[in-house]
């Protein structure tokens, strides 16, 4: 079983501070980390490998600095790492990113693809499902637990919903998007770090993937998303707290407020 985990290197939002004057994020000097959900995906893959055998490969699309994210994945126990990086890939939106990563996955080969649910810097939750669509394989998003792999080719997954969950049997090759709850990531091993830097991170550039790529679906030009405007969300004023009311009085007070604002 060949498991491939797709990861993204993101700024550590815990370390991000706001510029007090412009109210925008200060990104300078902010450390980069592996996106949390993706790291759960790595852990889930490593657990599957320990239970059922196979290999775990990790793929990251990004600039050369993303190398350290891949080394971390290797130090956690992944077998091989691929950095998907090329000038032509710059400026890709989720569609183009999914198109490029799909090409990389076709190049590498896979039975089970795991991505994180969404990245903390963009929060789109689109790339995983888009990869599955591009590759034409079944997908289970919001995976909360992987119960089993049956007959060597069927994954039994619990998918979280807002008000319920589904238990789904899905035939490999397939793609799962991992929630942070899927697995608590292990620490890198101190010795694993030494090994990680002895291994090669394989670079997949434009030329390596050109046979699998659709040229009009990559980079800025291949990205249908247009950023119309970006702005800093203004903090809302503090709410009003109505205290010491009986349930009936509370209902009345709320209705009065809604009525006052012409909401109802």
């Amino acid at each position: 079983m060949k498991i491939v985990v797709c990861i993204k290197q993101v700024p550590d939002t815990n370390e991000v501070k706001l510029d007090p004057i412009t109210n925008t994020l200060i990104r300078d000097g902010v450390p980069s980390i592996i996106n949390h959900d993706d790291k759960s995906g790595i852990e889930a893959a490593l657990i599957l490998k320990e239970r059922f055998g196979g290999t775990v490969s990790v793929v990251c699309m990004g600039p050369p600095q993303a190398d350290v994210a891949l080394r971390e994945a290797l130090a956690m126990g992944c077998d091989e790492a691929y950095l998907v990086s090329a000038r032509e890939f710059g400026g890709s939106d989720t569609w183009a990113t999914a198109s490029i990563i799909s090409a990389a996955l076709t190049n590498i080969g896979y039975d089970l693809v795991i991505t994180g649910r969404q990245a903390i810097d963009g929060d789109t939750a689109q790339v995983g499902p888009q990869i599955a669509e591009t590759l034409g394989i079944p997908q289970v998003s919001y995976a909360e637990e992987i119960y089993d792999i049956e007959d060597g080719n069927k994954v039994i997954v619990k998918r979280q919903f807002e008000d319920r969950y589904h238990i789904i049997e899905v035939k490999m090759p397939c793609l799962l998007t991992a929630l942070a709850e899927l697995a608590t990531p292990r620490y890198m091993h101190a010795g694993g770090i030494i090994d990680a830097y002895k291994k090669d991170v394989k670079l997949l550039g434009y030329d390596d993937l050109k046979d699998q790529l659709v040229p009009e679906y990559i980079g800025l030009k291949g990205s249908p998303t247009n950023v119309f405007k970006s702005f800093t969300k203004q903090a809302k004023g503090t709410g009003t707290i109505l205290k010491d009311l009986s349930p009936d009085e509370a209902v009345e007070a709320i209705i009065a407020k809604l009525d006052e604002r012409h909401i109802i």
Binding site: H189, A190, G191, G192, I194, D195
Partner: peptide, 22 residues
């Protein structure tokens, strides 16, 4: 478990294979 107790010792003996700086 994470190797903190065997840093400067050889992997040959199950250590981390690191050094005194690490």
């Amino acid at each position: 478990k994470v190797g903190l107790m065997g840093i400067p010792y050889s992997k040959e003996y199950g250590g981390v294979g690191g050094d005194y700086l690490g």
